[in-house]
């Protein structure tokens, strides 16, 4: 990943949300998403275990929240 790509990736959603423009050209084409669709590329591959681990940490730490969305954005449909 180059720096230009990263900046574009992070800045575009915010800019487009503000401008109301949603018609953009994806820089990762649908046929290029095989790797992203692999189960090993899911943030929360095992929901039953992931929620339990969140419970273990929350029970023993002062911090809480923002443990992750457990999915989304894989672009694999």
């Amino acid at each position: 990943m180059n720096g230009k790509c990263l900046i574009k990736a992070l800045a575009l959603p915010a800019v487009l949300l503000l401008t109301g423009c949603a018609d953009i050209e994806p820089w990762v084409k649908p046929y290029e998403r095989a790797h992203l669709a692999d189960p090993i590329m899911q943030f929360g591959r095992n929901p039953v275990s992931d929620t339990y681990i969140i419970h273990v940490y929350q029970s023993r730490e002062g911090a809480r929240g923002a443990e992750g969305e457990s999915g989304g954005g894989c672009g694999c449909n």
């Binding site: 990943m1 990736a9 959603p13 943030f43 923002a66 954005g73």
Partner: peptide
């Protein structure tokens, strides 16, 4: 809670989460 998941490249995903 607010979350944003972003495809960065064909090999990379990023996720941002904020929770109050």
């Amino acid at each position: 809670r607010f979350g944003l998941t972003q495809v960065i490249t064909k090999d990379m995903l990023m996720e941002f989460t904020f929770e109050t």
